[in-house]
């Protein structure tokens, strides 16, 4: 296949950045999207130009490192991660627009690489069960009904990629935060700290500059792991109960 690529190039956080056009002539349908970019980068290197920087690691759809806003969709046209997207999803001769995640809370580091440290800081605010190593009971002393464990697992699948934020016109992080809040609120191990947890995580989310949720559902539609909006509803409930009954941290 032949492709025209329009790619966001930005030298560093302070650079203004611009779209730059590239032509690629020998793209195979079996390539993954990132392998297509590898090919471009090899060509650029041979010309002595700087390659396009993008984040990636596992290339198996699980680490959450890859991003890319492709033709107006985070992770491109399918509901997968960019690394699992293959070129057969595109047409010969097509022009593809490739941009970084756009959100105030995710500043661009270089080209297509953004800083998602805000997600880590939200987890640090309370996305855990406070248990020290070795201070536990036998695992089977906490039976958990299978349906509950399954729901918790559904929520726990979030890979922290940030596509939900990138897809949202308000750049809200609600889907990401609610996935972790849900997982731990559903499980007996997480119940003791549930009020404090949701309050602290939401407070951190707000302070990072993510927008508010207006229930458009774009995040759910674009999430590569199928994280459901019901998690947001659950988090809202958790939050109201916490606000009504706790000490308002």
């Amino acid at each position: 296949m032949k492709l025209t690529l329009k790619i966001w190039r930005q030298k560093n956080a302070n650079d203004k950045g611009k779209m730059v056009e590239y032509k690629l002539n020998h793209v195979s349908e079996d390539m993954s999207f990132l392998e297509m970019l590898d090919v471009l980068n090899e060509e650029l290197l041979h010309k002595g130009e700087e390659p396009v920087a993008f984040d990636h690691d596992c290339r198996e759809g699980i680490c959450g490192m890859c991003s890319l806003y492709i033709n107006g969709h985070p992770h491109g046209p399918l509901q997968t991660t960019t690394c699992q997207l293959h070129m057969r999803s595109f047409k010969d001769g097509e022009t593809i627009y490739i941009e970084p995640w756009r959100a105030k809370a995710f500043p661009v580091v270089r080209d297509l690489v953004v800083d998602r440290g805000a997600f880590d800081r939200i987890i640090q605010a309370g996305g855990y069960v406070s248990v020290n190593t070795g201070v536990t009971v036998d695992a089977n002393e906490i039976p958990i009904p299978r349906e509950v464990a399954d729901l918790a697992m559904d929520a726990a699948q979030c890979i922290g990629c940030g596509a939900c934020v990138a897809s949202c016109k308000n750049a809200s992080a609600m889907l990401f935060v609610s996935a972790k809040v849900s997982q731990l609120a559903l499980l007996p191990q997480g119940k003791a700290e549930r009020k404090k947890r949701v309050e602290k995580m939401v407070a951190q989310m707000d302070s990072e500059g993510f927008g508010s949720c207006t229930n458009t559902g774009a995040c759910e539609a674009e999430c590569p792991k199928g994280i459901s909006l019901t998690n947001i509803a659950r988090m809202n409930r958790e939050y109201f109960v916490a606000k009504l009954t706790s000490n308002n941290l």
Binding site: Y128, V129, V131, T133, G134, V135, T136, V137, D138, A139, N140, I142, P143, I144, P145, R146, A149, A152, M153, A156, Q183, L184, L187, Q189, G190
Partner: peptide
């Protein structure tokens, strides 16, 4: 043996039987 106890205490959602055990 302790690893599994530790992970469960942290909220790792391991697969379970209908009775709720691992």
């Amino acid at each position: 043996v302790s690893i599994i106890d530790q992970c469960v205490a942290q909220g790792v959602p391991f697969a379970r039987e209908y009775g709720g055990l691992l």
